[in-house]
């Protein structure tokens, strides 16, 4: 109701400066650092720096791990969001608050926490090592775990928001027609909130791609195994700030290109 009353205002008149001014400042604040990178980039030596095998290796590892982390988040996060939005149970508020912990935690602390649980001497990690002979730290799987830990809240929060905004009457209608709860979820709920899931997955992927602190703490840093682009950028910064700028730009360009092309494909608009 609120919506239909407000809608006509949308196209009327020019936008008020009280909104326009902070919005412009907001754009400058977000875009200027990128401009800084572009201005400082060592363009003449760019090509030869990009051809270094370590760069491609780190880039490939970043893309693969961020994608796997996003898949893991989808698998666990969508049902979790559904639980939070559709099932009433005691402690739901507390649980919702706990899910945002990885957002508040400094990533390095998140990495230490993961080590304490999944490390070689961790609560679960010890058991994994003894019974299955699996240790996660210093492996590519460990990178995926660290990225998923940090990125999952983004997915859960967006999907839960979408679920809460979705019209539950459609689900009720399906249920009255005899569909089981699972069928309702698969055939009605999921298609209904698909845009929310997509938005959440994109956020999740972007966050996983840029992950630094938890990854270097939990999975370590070894080229080809666990050295993702942000880790390579950080270490390049120690000795060759110019190389760090190049690596950052590569990561930015690739992620923007992928996100833009996905948007085109899925929504049919630019």
């Amino acid at each position: 109701m609120i919506r239909s009353r407000r809608r006509p205002h949308r196209s009327q008149g020019r936008p008020p400066w009280l909104l326009l001014l902070p919005a412009t400042l907001g754009i400058a604040f977000l875009v200027l650092p990128l401009a800084g990178l572009l201005v400082r980039a060592p363009w003449p030596t760019m090509a030869e720096r990009l051809a270094e095998p370590q760069v491609l290796q780190a880039l490939r590892l970043s893309l693969v791990t961020a994608t796997l982390a996003t898949l893991a988040c989808l698998l666990l996060g969508v049902p979790l969001a559904w639980l939070l939005a559709r099932v009433t149970f005691p402690g739901r508020r507390l649980l919702r608050a706990l899910i945002t912990v990885p957002l508040v935690l400094p990533p390095v602390v998140g990495g230490v926490a993961l080590l304490l649980v999944l490390g070689r001497r961790g609560l679960i990690g010890q058991w994994l090592d003894e019974t299955l002979g699996v240790t996660l730290p210093f492996t590519t799987a460990g990178v995926v775990v660290a990225e998923a830990f940090v990125a999952m809240p983004f997915l859960v929060i967006s999907v839960e928001g979408a679920l809460r905004a979705a019209d539950t009457r459609l689900e009720e209608a399906a249920a009255t027609l005899g569909a089981s709860r699972m069928t309702v979820f698969r055939r009605v709920t999921l298609p209904l909130v698909a845009p929310g899931v997509l938005a959440g997955a994109v956020l999740c992927w972007a966050r996983a791609l840029g992950e630094f602190g938890a990854t270097i703490t939990f999975a370590g840093n070894f080229p080809g195994q666990t050295q993702t682009m942000p880790l390579a950028v950080y270490l390049a910064l120690e000795t060759e700030p110019e190389a760090a700028v190049v690596l950052s730009l590569v990561l930015l360009a690739v992620s923007v290109a992928i996100l833009a092309s996905l948007r085109d494909r899925w929504t049919g608009t630019a």
Partner: peptide, 8 residues
Amino acid sequence: GCGSGAQD
């Protein structure tokens, strides 16, 4: 994501 390096 971008800035945590120095912080860490």
